[in-house]
Every structure is written in structure tokens, then in C-alpha cells.
């Protein structure tokens, strides 16, 4: 069986596994939605009130019934109602997903714009001071956790420029593109640092590999200019590992960057999940995590296909 087809068949199975896992996990977390909503005041509830609330949150049903109802809803595109938002889970997800998507795209673009030229530069100046500098920066970027980058960015802005990043009420891109970008630039940089470092390293080593291949040498010896060899022959081939890297990274980013969204107070998907866990908003936790897992798997599948299309030498069975 061809590998992509195999992956496609496993897809529903894995999604089912994720559903079961998240459904059980969130219910194993001690404390329920009633405590989360009322705090210590929940101790003042009369038995009748408690019963009414338990029924309202759907906690009075048999767990298998709950799961079956939820799952059959999901299959029909109904993810249930979020108890904290009072809205359908899917709507809450889509309301916040646009931000996460924008953040992911923006940080990918930033990383590629910074990382690719730096990587090519380093490869074509191998072992010279420029190469060394790029590699050191890349290594440091890869070694600094995103949330530390964020903290340091905020810190340096406030100490050296006396300003803090614009984190007022969040404006969506279509309302005020400039205002939106000024809010997103720091979080995107923060998220992009590690990825940019990876782009540098991958593009550098791919470039080096290809520059040493016979056909490139042949092209050079035939009198083709160095620039032409790099841009027309080497670069397209160096892009293949980058596609894989970007795809996998994009899949992760779509899951929402919990810590970065927290630090920069961005209402993205990561924060929705965090709040939902805290509030014991079961339907919302289940919905968002399933959604994130779905994205992750779709992106990975696409990456595999793109990889196969770009490089016919790939034999999937060995993977």
C-alpha cells in the first residue's frame, strides 16, 4: 500500500484516539465546572441548586453516554456549547483561530525572510568569519526558549526605549492592518526566533551538500556564473528539506503558542485552551484539542505529499 494512503487510513483512527484521550484526561483533572465558576461560593449551594447546575453542565449523565453524545455530535460537525462563552465551541475556535493563524504565518514569513538569505550567505562563505557569526547566532537562537526571547524583548524595549510593546485591545488585521501588525510583530519575532535559527541551519547545510554535488561542479566548469549556479541549480534543491521543516513547524504553530500568547496577552487558540482547562469547560477543551490535532495531522500529511512530489527519490516505506 502506498504510504500516503496508509496515513490517510490511519487518520480517523488517530483522531478517535485523540478524542478518547482528551475526553478522559480533562475529566480526570480534579475539580469541576461548578467550582470553577462559583469558587468558594459553591459551598453555599443548596442540594437542589447543585443538582440543577450539575444537570446544566451535563455532569449527571453516564460517562459513556456523554462520550457517545459528544462524538456523534462531532461527526456531524457539532462540537457542543462552551459553558464559559455560552457559544458553540466551533464558533469560539474560529473566532480565535484567525489570530493563531496570522501569528503562525507571520512568524514563518519572518523566519524564512531572515533565515534563508543568512543560510545561503553562510554556505557560500563557508568557514569565513561571516559564516561563523551566522552559525553562532543561529545556535543561540535555537537554544533560547521562546518565552525567554519574549521576556527579553519586552525587557529591552522597556529599558532601552522606555516603551512597552503595544498590547492594548487587540485589533484584527482587517480592521486596522498597521495597528494589527504593530501588535503582532513582537510575538511573531519571539515565535520565529527558534524557527529562523532552524531555517539558517537547514538551508546552510542543504546548500553545502548541493554545492559539492557533481552536477553543480560540472555546471561551474562549463562556465556558468556562480550566481546563476546558486540561484538556478542549487537553491531549488536546497528548498526540499526546508519544505519539510516549514510544514512540521507550521503544524506546531497552529496549535497556538501557549506561552507566547500568555506573555503578549494575545487572545489566540493557545490561551483559549489554557482558560478552558482552568474553567473545566469540557466541551471547549475537547473541541480545541481535537481541532489542533486535526490541523497538525493534515499539515503533516500535506508535507509528506509535497515531499514526495518534490523529491521522487523518496521511498515512503523506509520511513
Amino acid at each position: 500500500m502506498p504510504y500516503p494512503l496508509k496515513r490517510l487510513l490511519a487518520f480517523p483512527l488517530v483522531m478517535f484516539g485523540v478524542s478518547v484521550f482528551v475526553f478522559i484526561a480533562i475529566r480526570l483533572v480534579p475539580g469541576d465546572a461548578i467550582t470553577a465558576m462559583l469558587g468558594t461560593e459553591s459551598g453555599l449551594l443548596t442540594p437542589a441548586q447543585r443538582e440543577a447546575l450539575t444537570a446544566y453542565f451535563g455532569l449527571d449523565q453516564n460517562i459513556f453516554v456523554q462520550f457517545w453524545r459528544w462524538l456523534s455530535g462531532v461527526v456531524q460537525g457539532d462540537f457542543g456549547i462552551s459553558t464559559t462563552y455560552g457559544q458553540p465551541v466551533l464558533r469560539v475556535i474560529f473566532d480565535h483561530f484567525s489570530l493563531t493563524l496570522e501569528l503562525a504565518v507571520l512568524s514563518m514569513l519572518l523566519s524564512l525572510v531572515i533565515g534563508l538569505p543568512a543560510g545561503i550567505y553562510a554556505a557560500t562563505h563557508k568557514d569565513r568569519p561571516g559564516d561563523l557569526a551566522v552559525r553562532v547566532v543561529a545556535m543561540l537562537g535555537q537554544s533560547t526558549p521562546g518565552f525567554v526571547v519574549g521576556l527579553l524583548l519586552i525587557f529591552s524595549l522597556s529599558v532601552f526605549f522606555g516603551v512597552l510593546p503595544q498590547m492594548g485591545s487587540f485589533v484584527p488585521f482587517w480592521q486596522d492592518p498597521l495597528g494589527n501588525l504593530s501588535q503582532m510583530i513582537l510575538p511573531a519575532l519571539t515565535l520565529g526566533t527558534a524557527f529562523a535559527a532552524a531555517v539558517i541551519r537547514v538551508s546552510r547545510s542543504a546548500m553545502l551538500d548541493i554545492l559539492s554535488e557533481d552536477y553543480v561542479r560540472t555546471a561551474r566548469s562549463k562556465g556558468l556564473s556562480r550566481r546563476r549556479v546558486i540561484w538556478r541549480h542549487a537553491l531549488p534543491n536546497a528548498l526540499i528539506p526546508l519544505v519539510t521543516l516549514s510544514g512540521v513547524e507550521f503544524g506546531y504553530l497552529l496549535g497556538g503558542a501557549v506561552l507566547v500568547e500568555q506573555i503578549f496577552a494575545l487572545p489566540g487558540l493557545g490561551r483559549v485552551v489554557l482558560d478552558a482547562i482552568q474553567q473545566r469547560d469540557y466541551a471547549l477543551v475537547q473541541g480545541t484539542i481535537l481541532f489542533i490535532a486535526f490541523n497538525f495531522m493534515v499539515v503533516n500529511l500535506l508535507v509528506d505529499l509535497a515531499y514526495a512530489a518534490l523529491d521522487p527519490r523518496i521511498r515512503f516505506e523506509t520511513k
Partner: peptide, 21 residues
């Protein structure tokens, strides 16, 4: 009133300083 929820209070401080709030 145009109310924003900013869960991080250092973010609120930033918004006050930048005049957004």
C-alpha cells in the same frame, strides 16, 4: 466604555503607557 480584557497586567501597563487605554 470600550472594555478590553488583558489577562496579563504588565500588558495593561504597556497599553496605558502607549495611550491605548
Amino acid at each position: 466604555l470600550d472594555i478590553s480584557v488583558l489577562p496579563d497586567e504588565t500588558a495593561i501597563l504597556a497599553a496605558l503607557r502607549s495611550g491605548q487605554v
